[in-house]
Simulated assay, not measured.
Amino acid sequence: MSQPDFDDPDLPLAELFAAWPDMAGAFMDKRMLCPGCLIAPFHAITDACLEYDLDEDAFRDELQARIKP
């Protein structure tokens, strides 16, 4: 199975965590409860940033740094 598109604005968090498990640490470092949340299959990064009042561009940059080439 191919990796999902990280830049897809509608990528559900559950799929993000399944494809890149290390990204859960970035969420937990910010005390975000997204990893393991029942809403993760329905929320995307944008939704999480809105919920936790985070700068989405800065957070995406942090997440992008965790993707291994």
Rank of each mutant, 00 (worst) to 15 (best):
residue 1 M to W: 10
residue 1 M to L: 14
residue 1 M to K: 13
residue 2 S to R: 14
residue 3 Q to S: 11
residue 4 P to N: 03
residue 4 P to I: 04
residue 5 D to G: 00
residue 6 F to V: 08
residue 7 D to V: 00
residue 8 D to Q: 05
residue 11 L to G: 03
residue 12 P to E: 09
residue 12 P to Y: 13
residue 12 P to V: 10
residue 13 L to Q: 01
residue 13 L to V: 07
residue 14 A to S: 15
residue 14 A to T: 12
residue 15 E to H: 05
residue 16 L to M: 14
residue 17 F to A: 07
residue 17 F to V: 08
residue 18 A to V: 04
residue 19 A to K: 03
residue 19 A to E: 03
residue 20 W to K: 07
residue 20 W to Y: 12
residue 22 D to K: 15
residue 23 M to Y: 05
residue 23 M to Q: 11
residue 25 G to Q: 12
residue 25 G to D: 13
residue 27 F to G: 04
residue 28 M to W: 00
residue 28 M to L: 10
residue 28 M to P: 00
residue 29 D to Q: 07
residue 30 K to Y: 01
residue 34 C to I: 05
residue 35 P to L: 01
residue 35 P to N: 02
residue 37 C to A: 13
residue 37 C to N: 03
residue 39 I to W: 07
residue 40 A to Q: 05
residue 40 A to W: 06
residue 41 P to R: 04
residue 41 P to E: 05
residue 41 P to G: 01
residue 44 A to K: 02
residue 44 A to V: 02
residue 46 T to Q: 11
residue 47 D to H: 14
residue 47 D to I: 04
residue 48 A to F: 01
residue 49 C to H: 06
residue 52 Y to D: 09
residue 54 L to H: 12
residue 55 D to Y: 13
residue 56 E to C: 03
residue 56 E to G: 02
residue 57 D to I: 11
residue 59 F to Q: 07
residue 60 R to P: 00
residue 61 D to A: 15
residue 63 L to E: 12
residue 63 L to H: 10
residue 64 Q to E: 15
residue 65 A to F: 09
residue 66 R to L: 15
residue 66 R to V: 07
residue 67 I to T: 11
residue 67 I to R: 15
residue 69 P to Q: 15
